[in-house]
Nucleic acid binder design. Structure first.
Lengths: 121, 121
DNA sequence: TATGCAACACACAAAAATGTAAGTAATGGC
DNA sequence: GCCATTACTTACATTTTTGTGTGTTGCATA
């Protein structure tokens, strides 16, 4: 989330894998602690910073800010600033993010199946 | 990958989110640096440790071991040990992991689309 | 004049993931 | 006896992610 060290083996490995494999790239983008929660909340509606924060239990201002910045940089959300005081900033899904919704539904089903199965053991 | 501290806010947040959201749970399981690469290599075939290592550039013994252990614990791969010397250990996908293959295909398409789009900017 | 609000930024700390290097066991072949 | 092989393990270092707490801005209202 903070700046990454671009010469580290860690970083280079990440880049190489994401460059080769579309799934790895997708997971890379989606894997932040709160990102999916944020994206979920934005499905079919626009929300402002404070509203997102209220919808997502335990998230802090900082983590919400960092994740939103990354999601914006990755082209998954749009940020709109209104020239008001106090500030008003609205977030919404981009078109390419919306294309993921059906995939999320399937992943969601799988995730629930998997969790149930693991709990039986 | 090493043991996690079960009382940390980090850990508790992770658990809570994964407990509520199937997608978050799925991403949580799949998000290790080399996990998708490993799973990909195992689609439709069984491979032993050394073969996996040769198929995955730059991975180290340690990272491969750690990821395989987690994948096994999460029920995504099966580990079969043969009583030979030198040892022979084979890994294969479980049935529930195989159910993810169609989702991977879609995620893969999306990942490539997304990357192409990002590169245009 | 003091306070509150929204959406951050900043400095710092803690935890988690990843990487590096070396070592281990049992056995077969030389 | 010495070495090679396989699938690891262990100790340690580095990088990355996440969390905590405080400060900032500019205007409105009390």
């Amino acid at each position: 989330m903070a700046k990454r060290k671009e010469t580290s083996t860690n970083h280079l490995n990440r880049e190489q894998i994401s460059g080769v494999c579309g799934v790895a790239h997708a997971i890379d983008i989606l894997a932040g602690r709160w990102k999916l929660f944020i994206l979920y909340k934005l499905v079919n509606r626009t929300l402002r910073f404070r509203e997102l924060k209220e919808h997502i239990p335990n998230i802090t201002d900082r983590m919400l800010t960092l994740h939103l910045q990354e999601l914006e940089a990755d082209g998954l959300v749009t940020r709109t600033v209104y020239a008001e005081v106090p500030p008003r900033v609205e977030y919404r899904l981009t078109e390419i993010a919306a294309r993921l919704i059906p995939v999320w539904d399937q992943l969601n089903d799988w995730g629930h199946q998997h969790r149930d199965k693991q709990l039986q053991r």
